[in-house]
Nucleic acid binder design. Structure first.
Lengths: 208, 208
DNA sequence: GGACCATCTAAGCGCTCGCTCAGCCTTCCG
DNA sequence: CGGAAGGCTGAGCGAGCGCTTAGATGGTCC
């Protein structure tokens, strides 16, 4: 209903950068609907209805329903990558940086479950170039974790037999949070992040 | 094409128990289609076409498209549960049984990716009683892993602070294999199973 | 005040969806 | 050989889909 205030930074909700206002409302409605029912089970009428608009209004701001998913997916992946990088680039030992990265990444997947669910599980609905673009972003995400594990392994800080496989497993663990996390449940995003950071340090055999 | 032979045991493909022949062909076609495109993006015409039949033939053997998913989901969950239980019930230390359970469970998710993908990721498309029935099966699966971890923790064999959270993480890790595993990739189901069993033992802080 | 542009809606087009039905084969039983 | 039963198909129904179009509305600049 009321207008969303824009603060100086990039805060003010996860979608503050999307404008104009009607376009953002439609996008947020689409995120909710896609997360709840999945892309293919969501109708453009449902999205428009959630945004308080007529079905035709959607096509003023987006060319197709798929473009909505594409925009959501790209922004979401970029946000996740940014969060991971920020943690990985901080000074500290490999163990500290890996734990920090996992903690932040998991916290995001838990706190923004609806977005994360769309980002992680609705990729298959994209085709052609859009899909290729998103998969490239995802490979960059994977690389951040792999580099952290490799650093720790090479420096003797970790005990890892299979860097590639362990990377896959760590990412798996983090991503799957979007599937099971329930905001109404007993755990907070912070608690899950802390638990998972600890588990990952064990997986890589961090000393201490 | 050729008829599927029935051997004495319960072998001869994962769907040998489903009959008659045309019903099984339709079900296998549905598993492939659901795994490839998702339930909502799959049409009954596609399923029938893959099985080499006309669209109307589907409705001789199944009342609705949803009933196909329900049948696939129940049989798949039962198979997964059976595999887990068989490993968990074998004699041995908690660590040995947990490693064995994870190894078997992961191997199944990797070797039967198409089935596992439908089982793990298309549950939301089921509604009402069907969904409740499947979720009960899933809770029984979760309980097997939790009991194993609890056993090891109580006996001092494991070092686990948060049994419930660690259980969630272990299941997460196993289930997500269905999402990323690629039969054409470099890893065999056996290799992934062995790697994941090792990682899980580290997560629970198994001595030795 | 009038032209212009962006935004939005009511109505609806063409299409494909899940599903149905009348009728044709094949098989089996006498 | 006749008749019943079940498996299957071709044709198609009603509904709902993604998306389009014509026109109403409201703000902005001359």
């Amino acid at each position: 209903m009321g207008a969303v205030e824009r603060t100086a930074g990039d805060e003010g909700g996860p979608w503050a950068e999307v404008g104009p206002d009607a376009a953002r409302r439609l996008l947020i409605a689409a995120v909710d609907a896609f997360a709840e029912r999945g892309y293919h089970a969501t109708t453009t009428r449902d999205i428009a209805g959630r945004a308080g608009m007529s079905p035709a209004a959607l096509y003023i701001h987006y060319r197709t329903k798929e473009e909505l998913l594409h925009r959501i997916s790209r922004i979401g992946h970029e946000k996740a990558l940014e969060i991971l990088r920020a943690a990985a680039d901080r000074p500290g030992s490999a163990a500290e940086r890996l734990a920090d990265a996992v903690r932040s990444f998991v916290r995001w997947h838990a706190a923004q479950t609806t977005t994360a669910r769309v980002v992680q599980y609705e990729l298959d609905a994209l085709g052609g170039e859009a899909r290729a673009e998103i998969m490239a972003l995802r490979r960059r995400t994977d690389a951040v974790i792999r580099d952290l594990i490799e650093d720790g392994a090479r420096g003797g800080e970790f005990d890892v037999h299979d860097v590639e496989g362990t990377t896959l497993a760590v990412l798996s663990l983090c991503v799957d949070v979007a599937r099971w996390f329930n905001a109404a449940g007993r755990r907070t995003p912070d608690e899950v992040g802390a638990l998972y950071a600890d588990l990952v340090l064990r997986m890589v055999g961090a000393k201490g």
